[in-house]
Amino acid sequence: MTGTTGATGTRGATRTSGTTGWLEGKQLWERVPAPLVDAGLVALAALDLWLNLSDRTPRGLALAALACGALAVRRRFPLAVFLLTLPATLIQDTLVAPIAALYTLAERSRNRRLLALCATLYALATAIPWPPDHGAGFGRTWTLVDFVYTLATAAAPVLLGQLVQARRDLSQRLVEIEEAKEHERALHAQAVLTRERAQLAREMHDVVSHQVSLIAVQAGAVQVGAKDAETREAARVIRSLSVGTLDELRTMVTLLRASGGDATELTPQPTLADLHRLVASSGIEAELKGELSPTVGTPAQRALYRTVQEALTNVRKHAPGARATVELWHDGTDVGVTITNTAPTRPALPLPSAHQGLVGLRERAEILHGTFESGPTGDRGYRVRMRIPAHAD
């Protein structure tokens, strides 16, 4: 009870120090080569069996050697190795081999029922007297007590293995979250740049182009109405320069309205030909099926591309570990794309989001006189589907 009456600050400092020390020890442990760890574990299990050997018959020695040697491949076949340690556990007084195998299985398996069953099997193999007549005078009560005690002991490697598995999953999710945040920051910066370019393009088109056009018109009027040749020539030069300036302005407005991505920001809008690269670089396990004719209108191609881009981004953020299928299809005069992902294999952590991606896709579909659907599937997956006219403009 003394520990429970300590100061809160002392307990917090002790807990923090202990956690830090454990993490540092874990990092040092992970640096040790796996073959060296396995060899040391096999040697430790052999020493444990040798000191507690109760059955020195050829059968008992063979089962003990099998239990120890199997630990060398426990990382590849955790369940099989654990099952191979049970016969030795039944007839020998061993601890290291089954506990190590049970920890490895818990660290690599997500099946809680299987882990509970394996812990129970280990407790039974330890508590049941062998040979059976050897425990005749031992009593069922003590056998039951031994079983409960061993089952509680088996819970330790199972819980530790699950803790290590959760820590590994958390580390992986933190990396994925950081990558997703970086991707969102890049998209946000690109969106801000696009808005600024669009605003600048409107200003140039509505103000500067209008004024240069007036200069060209006035210069043309002077050129027609002037009486002397020198004035007409000056007006002609002014009008020619104004027309050239208008052409340059139109080119600049076109470039400013183009979506940017790289440093040059002068690349064209994406098309269906860019889908293969988009799917391959999505960062998830994705497959592209079907194809569409290159004669599909540019607005339709751009809409389908943006739909796939948004859907794959959402899969990466909200369904970690899921597989995605991107299917292009055509139906009469309409074309479309369906993106379906399976259920996530790991729990998704809440990520900051404006929840505007799917809304923007629905608005894009309505502008092109198409339809947009999204929603969960029956197997805990998610489906996104867009249909638009092939020659929408």
Rank of each mutant, 00 (worst) to 15 (best):
L114N: 11
L304W: 06
R195W: 06
V208G: 04
P270N: 14
R167V: 12
L328T: 02
A80R: 13
L105I: 14
L275S: 06
E285V: 11
R173T: 07
T298C: 00
I177E: 04
R277I: 07
T16I: 08
P157Y: 02
T85M: 09
Q190W: 02
G137T: 06
L49I: 15
W22Y: 10
S240F: 10
E30R: 15
D48T: 04
A156S: 02
A319S: 13
E178K: 08
T340N: 10
D38T: 10
A219H: 09
T377V: 02
V148I: 15
D274H: 09
M204P: 00
S109N: 14
Q356G: 01
R113T: 15
R202L: 11
Q190A: 00
A116R: 15
L368D: 03
D38S: 04
T254G: 09
L160V: 13
Q172P: 04
S353E: 02
A64D: 04
V243A: 10
E203Y: 05
R75S: 12
A303Q: 01
T104D: 09
A70P: 00
V222R: 01
R185K: 00
K181I: 14
L272D: 02
I367D: 07
R74C: 06
A390Q: 06
P33M: 11
M1K: 00
D393V: 15
G9K: 03
P132T: 13
L187K: 07
T267M: 05
T342R: 04
Q199W: 07
H134I: 13
T57C: 00
R173I: 02
R195I: 05
P78D: 11
A311Q: 08
T340S: 14
L214H: 05
A88L: 07
H369R: 14
I215Y: 01
A166T: 12
Q301L: 13
G381W: 02
L170W: 04
A311V: 11
L79N: 11
A348V: 03
M386S: 01
G135T: 05
E285H: 14
Q92W: 05
V308P: 06
R387K: 09
A155H: 03
A300C: 05
N111F: 15
L174Y: 03
L349S: 13
A100T: 09
V148C: 15
Q301Y: 13
D334N: 13
T231N: 07
A216D: 08
A154T: 03
N52I: 03
A319Q: 06
P58K: 08
R239N: 10
G357P: 01
D169W: 08
L312V: 11
T16H: 03
S209A: 12
L117D: 11
L44K: 04
G139E: 11
L86H: 05
K26E: 13
L256S: 01
D393A: 14
L292V: 02
A392W: 08
L61I: 14
L312W: 09
R140V: 14
G9A: 08
P294I: 00
R167D: 14
A72G: 10
G3E: 04
Q162H: 07
D146C: 15
G332C: 13
E373C: 02
V308A: 10
Q92G: 07
L114P: 14
Y382P: 02
G60I: 00
A43W: 14
P268G: 05
T85W: 09
G40M: 12
P268Q: 10
R173D: 06
T325A: 12
Q165Y: 05
T20V: 06
A186Q: 04
L44F: 08
P131K: 08
V217R: 02
D133C: 10
